[in-house]
Design a protein around this nucleic acid. Sequence first.
DNA 1: CGATCAGTTGAGAATGGTCAAATTCGGTGG
DNA 2: CCACCGAATTTGACCATTCTCAACTGATCG
Lengths: 243, 243
Amino acid sequence: MDRAQSPLARKLANFVALSDVELEVLDGLHQRRRNFIAGRDLVHQGQTHPAAYILADGWVCSYKLLRDGSRQVVDFQIPGDFLGLRSVLFRTADHNIEPVTAVEASEVLESDLLQAFSTTPRLATALLWAASRDEAMVVEHLVGIGRRDALERTAHFLIELSVRLTLVGLGTRDGYSCPLTQYHLADALGLSAVHVNRVLRKLREDDLLTFQMGQVTIHDFDALVELAEFDRSYLDQDGPLLR
Amino acid sequence: MDRAQSPLARKLANFVALSDVELEVLDGLHQRRRNFIAGRDLVHQGQTHPAAYILADGWVCSYKLLRDGSRQVVDFQIPGDFLGLRSVLFRTADHNIEPVTAVEASEVLESDLLQAFSTTPRLATALLWAASRDEAMVVEHLVGIGRRDALERTAHFLIELSVRLTLVGLGTRDGYSCPLTQYHLADALGLSAVHVNRVLRKLREDDLLTFQMGQVTIHDFDALVELAEFDRSYLDQDGPLLR
DNA sequence: CGATCAGTTGAGAATGGTCAAATTCGGTGG
DNA sequence: CCACCGAATTTGACCATTCTCAACTGATCG
């Protein structure tokens, strides 16, 4: 098995050693290529029978909207991520999905997915793993919002992004390009945009990290890890569980 | 299929219509019955090759511990819940599991689980659904901590518990018995115990709900739903997805 | 009957929010 | 190249939700 694979296949292979047939079925999910422009939601809360997407290029964010107009970003997805799985399984979207940038993604319909699960059930196990990893990220996020102050929380978030992007070849230990605005950060971190700005200034003044003009520059990775009490183990997997 | 089923089987049947063979395999996971006393952790952060558990009786909570000694409770589990799935899939526990009460649970080893996935792969799909429902709860929790104030957040949490307990026959619209202390609430809601106490007083004074002596009494369910902007759809499923 | 733990209350401090007003940046049209 | 526009960012002043500390009550248990 040495031919070119999709980023998703590479990710899943970490968990379940996939056979040729399974890889082909996974490839088959990449029909229906779609392009989206920034800002117009792919999926909105309450939508029934939404599709899932495999993200090929660009960033999207998943968020929930509250009655008072505020929103909480649950997660950002980057290339290689599978998104909307939960919405498909429940046949109703419980969150919105907004492209942060222009986005290229493969649409996966409920029928495609269930078909794939029937013919190659181990794919379900593999996706169960991917879903668990996503859940681990949400849990880390929850801990941050619940128990870390604004500075630690922001640092943790930006370091997590750095590690995730590095895993798919889109970043290094020194930084990454980042299309998020300070409003995105605020909505993700449970802070106001004004306070995010103050926190970013503090991080800059302390020579830890610069967030400017679509670029995150990390000046002191280790100090940030220390500050944020960041433990990357929830993002890694050291070998396939199912052979 | 009309014989007695475990609560877990009943829950999973909501999502995937399980065959006799699949139900038997699921039953088989209920060997190794264990009892635990309140307060001594079943699983602790960093533990490798932890087991998963199917909760038969009692409450447990999943939490993460921070360096400064504070903790964030991610979720409480009640009878019928499957817990520690993520830890098994990653072969390392990323959180602690503490029995809130005396607990009766079936221990599920990694090998049992993978064996079950191999012989009856649709069980993996069913557990994928259960995991997605759990993730939906964590997401709702995240939204609460990120964007709701202490009063709304507390109300949301206690109403969610009411609905979950009612689904497994342990509560009604009027209330439920609840073994949690105000410290548990504080750790779950990202508040201090002192503030939780003030919030509970406010809820009591407003004739919405009483939290006292292990008993939650709901005085005005609808007003609480309104206050907390509670939408139960993430807890329900209206019929099996896989036949 | 002391000890311990859950709950309760008050006072003062702090983290982060709100409002309002610059300032800068990235286009876009002339 | 320049003027201009809207969006994103930056800063200050003031405010409020929630925290911390500390004291006190009440129940339970050996």
